[in-house]
Computed example of a mutant assay.
Amino acid sequence: MQPTILDHVDRVARDVVSLVLRAERGPLAPWEPGAHIDLILPNWLTRQYSLCGEPDDRERYRIAVRHERLSRGGSDYIHRFLRRGHPIEVSAPRNNFPLRPAPEFLFLAGGIGITPILPMLRAAIAAGAVATLVYVGRSLATMPFTAQLRATYGGRVRLVATEHEGRPDFTALAAELPPRALVYCCGPSAMLDAAEAVFPAGRVHVERFRPPVKDFGPPRAFEAVCARSGRTIQVPPGETLLGALGHAGIAVPSGCREGVCGSCEITVVEGEPEHRDHLGAPPGRMYSCVSRACSPRLVLDL
């Protein structure tokens, strides 16, 4: 974790604030477009937010937070209580949504989904790629950074206020997609589903704030053996591996607890995990907040 100070709080759209976090000491960890950080809030909640500032700025991180009507406590606390000068612990950046090299890009952003797309658009253009952005929101008043985008990128950016124009035609955009272009999309689940349905598989990359609903069947009990400590933990059907480890006093870092942020990754030494995350865990790893076991026993590097 890295200590930071909340340096600026600016309202950038209706119900959206931009936070600039300044390093308390020393440079902040480097990051690349698509990365996010965990904020450890003073109310003990941990929340993930995409970085939307300048990757070259090692003194400051910038994020933007929408005040959700059905807030689970994170956005509500940020909007109501955080003020300039508050100390906030943040994690090192993690990137589950990396920008891959390509000669052309189509970026699609919905609402607060503009946050990871902003540095991507900047990086793509700086690399000499042809890049365009279709940015969708209910109204211009609810869409952060529109003035910045218009002033900086002009005709490369198309702003779509659905209350007046309706939703953009993704099928038409897919038909016009150049053969070597990649598509990056972040926004509400319905928008991401529509993008994945019409753009070529392997060329469309999405980041979800919430995992899609999947049916894995009823959870089964299993045994988790901690190889380094020698302890054996029973994980009942109604409890997650992360929860069972925590109740046994074995701390594992965690953030979203929904299988989308990657912060609770652990190494599997033996046994077959049942991957229930949306990220796609690398071989020999699993995300303990949602994933379970196909085998009766898992041996973990804990």
Rank of each mutant, 00 (worst) to 15 (best):
M1Y: 10
Q2L: 14
I5Q: 13
D7H: 15
V17R: 13
S18I: 04
V20Q: 14
A23W: 10
G26N: 08
G26K: 05
P27K: 08
L28R: 10
L28K: 06
A29H: 12
P30N: 07
G34L: 04
I40N: 05
N43H: 03
R47D: 05
S50G: 02
E54D: 15
E54H: 06
D56R: 14
R58G: 00
E59I: 03
G74V: 06
Y77M: 00
H79I: 04
H86W: 12
I88G: 08
E89H: 10
V90A: 09
N96W: 09
F97E: 07
F105C: 01
L108S: 09
L108W: 04
A109G: 11
G110T: 12
I112P: 11
I112W: 02
G113L: 13
G113W: 13
I114Y: 10
P116S: 03
L121M: 14
A127N: 08
V130K: 11
A131V: 07
T132Q: 14
T132E: 15
T132N: 13
L133T: 09
G137D: 13
R138Y: 04
S139V: 05
R150S: 15
A151E: 15
A151F: 01
Y153A: 04
V157K: 04
V160T: 07
A161D: 13
T162C: 09
H164N: 07
P168F: 05
D169W: 09
T171Q: 12
T171G: 12
A172Y: 01
A172Q: 11
A175S: 13
P178L: 07
P179W: 01
R180Q: 15
R180L: 11
Y184K: 03
S189H: 04
A195P: 04
H205K: 03
V206H: 01
V206E: 05
R210I: 14
R210H: 11
V213S: 14
P218M: 00
P218F: 00
P219I: 00
A221Y: 01
E223Q: 14
A227S: 15
G230W: 05
Q234C: 00
Q234K: 01
V235Q: 00
E239C: 03
T240R: 03
L241N: 02
A244Y: 02
L245R: 05
H247T: 09
A251F: 04
C256P: 09
E258D: 08
E258Y: 08
E258T: 14
V260M: 12
C264F: 05
E265S: 14
T267W: 05
V268P: 12
P273G: 10
P273L: 12
E274F: 06
H275R: 13
H278Y: 11
L279D: 09
G280H: 07
M286Q: 09
C289Y: 13
S291R: 14
C294S: 15
V299G: 10
L300I: 14
L302D: 09
